[in-house]
């Protein structure tokens, strides 16, 4: 992939895609209440993955995370290839998405949120 080295767009695309994928994976995990449709969908995804039967829900979440990361990266890379972006805003977005995903993934927080919504 060629890159315009005078623009910071590609660098921001690389980081934002990780934050976005982490947030999506954390939200999917949060929505996967045992017995619910999201958990069934995750189980179905895990069933088609090699070794997914033993690895369970996490294998599906990992596959979703990696897929979202790569797709978002390709899309953002093309969209931001020749753009100079305000770094502060994008780094804040990246850190906020990563921080939020980490908080949502922390099991006690996830369980508390699930209990509140159910």
């Amino acid at each position: 992939m060629s890159v315009d080295v005078t623009r910071n767009g590609p660098a921001q695309a690389a980081t934002l895609s990780v934050g976005c994928a982490a947030l999506v994976a954390a939200c999917v995990r949060l929505a996967a209440v045992p017995g619910g449709p999201c958990a069934s969908a995750l189980a179905a995804v895990a069933a088609v993955l090699p070794g997914g039967a033993q690895a369970g829900e996490f294998a599906a979440l990992q596959a979703i995370f990696l897929s979202v990361w790569l797709i978002v990266w390709i899309v953002l890379d093309r969209a931001l290839a020749r753009r100079e972006l305000p770094v502060g805003v994008h780094q804040t977005l990246f850190l906020a998405s990563l921080g939020l995903a980490t908080t949502l993934w922390w099991p006690p927080v996830a369980e508390a949120l699930r209990a509140r919504w159910s």
Binding site: V5, N8, A11, A14, V18, Q91
Partner: peptide
């Protein structure tokens, strides 16, 4: 992400503070 930034910007990395910090 770090590897792609370093390889793609290469010699231009020292010139862009924003990319270097990212």
């Amino acid at each position: 992400a770090a590897c792609s930034i370093i390889w793609r910007y290469g010699e231009a990395l020292p010139r862009s503070r924003a990319v270097r910090e990212t």
